[in-house]
């Protein structure tokens, strides 16, 4: 072996050693010195995120997220899959968070990036209210109480705020708000639950009609017909079939001329 190559390796190693020491020393020195230049908060560019193709922003709770779907797609995912063949430039942003209630969603809408995305969206898909109404789906036994608490003006005013906010961010995009279904129809108190959900939907529809460009997408009938066939094993969220049925309904509303292979 060549003595030279050994020397080169040693020199290179020594140089690397110095470099690493520099990195470490610099870091420690910086730490010891304390804070550097302070950061300007919120320098976000407000401009709308307008993309070339069709842009969909989905907001809401577990129904938007897709809880219960075996692939986690949810109706937003299926809708996106089907629309993609027609709009290759499609962007779908799913901002649904499990367990979100209307006030939480209102909070999310304060984030600049969320606002920016809404601003550039062609469709704004919204599911909200399930958690406000059923309090996470746990409250079957206290159904009545739950309804008492949820159907109050609290939810409706939150919803108003949300819709108003969205409209102020995006005057043209279509807002599609999902109506609730009754997940408890196989239970004894099915009729009570059904009537509660229907009256809830009614209130939502009334609220929504005050704003332009809002479609309330009914789902009540879908689940009324197919019952547990469309429900996930938790008895609350839709399953794959349920989400697909919802997505199909959305699709027919978004692409009225039809003709989309599913």
């Amino acid at each position: 072996m060549n003595k030279k190559s050994v020397n080169i390796v040693i020199m290179l190693s020594a140089a690397a050693c110095l470099l690493c020491l520099t990195g470490l020393g610099w870091l420690l020195w910086g730490q010891a010195r304390g804070v550097g230049e302070a950061l300007q908060p919120a320098t976000s560019a407000e401009g709308a995120a307008k993309t070339e193709g069709l842009s969909i922003v989905a907001l809401g709770d577990s129904l938007t997220r897709g809880t219960g779907d075996s692939e986690g797609k949810g109706y937003v995912g299926y809708l996106g899959d089907w629309l993609k063949s027609r709009y290759p430039e499609l962007t779908v942003s799913n901002l649904g968070v499990k367990g979100y209630t209307a006030p939480q969603l209102a909070e999310l809408l304060e984030q600049p990036e969320v606002r920016r995305q809404i601003g550039g969206a062609d469709y704004i898909l919204l599911t909200i209210g399930g958690n406000d109404l059923f309090q996470g789906g746990q409250a079957l036994l206290q159904l009545e109480e739950g309804i008492e608490a949820g159907s109050g003006e609290g939810f409706i005013s939150s919803l108003k705020g949300i819709l108003k906010e969205i409209r102020s961010l995006n005057a043209e995009g279509e807002i599609m708000l999902m109506g609730l279904y009754n997940p408890f129809q196989d239970f004894g108190e099915s009729n009570l639950a059904s009537s509660v959900v229907m009256s809830w939907n009614q209130k939502v529809w009334e609220t929504a009609s005050a704003y332009s460009g809002i479609i309330v997408v009914p789902t009540f009938d879908l689940f009324q017909q197919h019952g547990s066939d469309y429900l996930f094993s938790d008895g609350f969220h839709p399953n794959d079939k349920g989400y697909q049925a919802i997505a199909k309904r959305y699709l027919s509303l978004m692409v009225p001329e039809g003709g989309l292979a599913s």
């Binding site: 470099l19 690493c20 520099t22 990195g23 470490l24 610099w26």
Partner: peptide
């Protein structure tokens, strides 16, 4: 560079 310093350490 900082990362390399720490990784080296």
């Amino acid at each position: 560079l900082h990362e390399f310093g720490l990784a080296w350490y």
